[in-house]
Design a protein around this nucleic acid. Sequence first.
DNA 1: CGCATTCACTTAACATGTTAAGTATCGTTC
DNA 2: GAACGATACTTAACATGTTAAGTGAATGCG
Lengths: 172, 172
Amino acid sequence: MTKKLADPADGNAPAARHVPMRDFSRSLPMSLLRAREAVMRQFRPSLREHGLTEQQWRILRALAAIEAVEVTELARTAFLLGPSLSRILRDLEARNLIERKTAKADQRRSMVSISKEGVKLMAAVAPTSEAIYAEITRRFGARKLVELQEMLGELEQSLAGRGSADETIAEG
Amino acid sequence: MTKKLADPADGNAPAARHVPMRDFSRSLPMSLLRAREAVMRQFRPSLREHGLTEQQWRILRALAAIEAVEVTELARTAFLLGPSLSRILRDLEARNLIERKTAKADQRRSMVSISKEGVKLMAAVAPTSEAIYAEITRRFGARKLVELQEMLGELEQSLAGRGSADETIAEG
DNA sequence: CGCATTCACTTAACATGTTAAGTATCGTTC
DNA sequence: GAACGATACTTAACATGTTAAGTGAATGCG
């Protein structure tokens, strides 16, 4: 069960570390990925029962808090790229969960809002969703949860405004 | 700039909170998603220069540490689902970055290993990758980074063995 | 006004995520 | 040893991630 790692001192060992690097399973990206997956695994079955994907749910939640938004701002809020959002909005509109109308002042902009049916669907999903979140909070610890989120925010901050180590394309 | 939230006491306000819920932008899944994106944004340009995606890089890294693995174990290590891995391995094999051979004992299993070219590519990417990781560590703080990863691990643990609040499908 | 540029999306194309179904092989049971 | 179920993938189908290109509408400028 315990994974046998190659011992560099063991000339007869089956393995060789071709390129020496950190154990990638303990890298920050992997830690974040696994943690997020562990969390989302809790929610997906409930969403699935209502025919919603994680992203669709994000969009509805973002819309539920306001009257109407432009697509671009919705993309920022729901943390989705334009093309993904474009497709998902098309589908949500076809299911009558959202509504769109082009802005009067600027014909390029389209204002998106949640529909009456969308609100009903949200109301149906929200209680379970909140309960699951509460259970996660209980299991992990409310205080630690706050602490974790603060650290995640700080991590974001410390990397903000840097496309990468190579590029120097700031977005301002 | 500051987003105007609807005031329920303001009957004439443009907005209404259709379904009362937590501010989803501060939810744990979103925090984890944004944090991971902030981190990966640092690495992608470098990987892209070498024609590698994040997932392909994960696979090569997993392979670099050992002699050969079965596809199923590789999926677990690289945290990829079987179908995704199947496709990516097909492409990596076409690019001669990995090699496959069916196991003698069990014809169903195929053993995957990194090729000589794959090792060369890794050697070319690794220094930059390590440098970026070091810079992230420097910016965020080495101690805090360890602390964060511990918390992420604990979060995983606290949710382990639970498909969801609905299902009770343990995997053991 | 005429026109190039920018802006707000949308489409397109390809890689991956995700679930379900298919295929070949292995183990086991009778 | 033939049939059955389990195992280790692979394929298929559809949704999303991601980058590039396309489209129509504003904006800036000579």
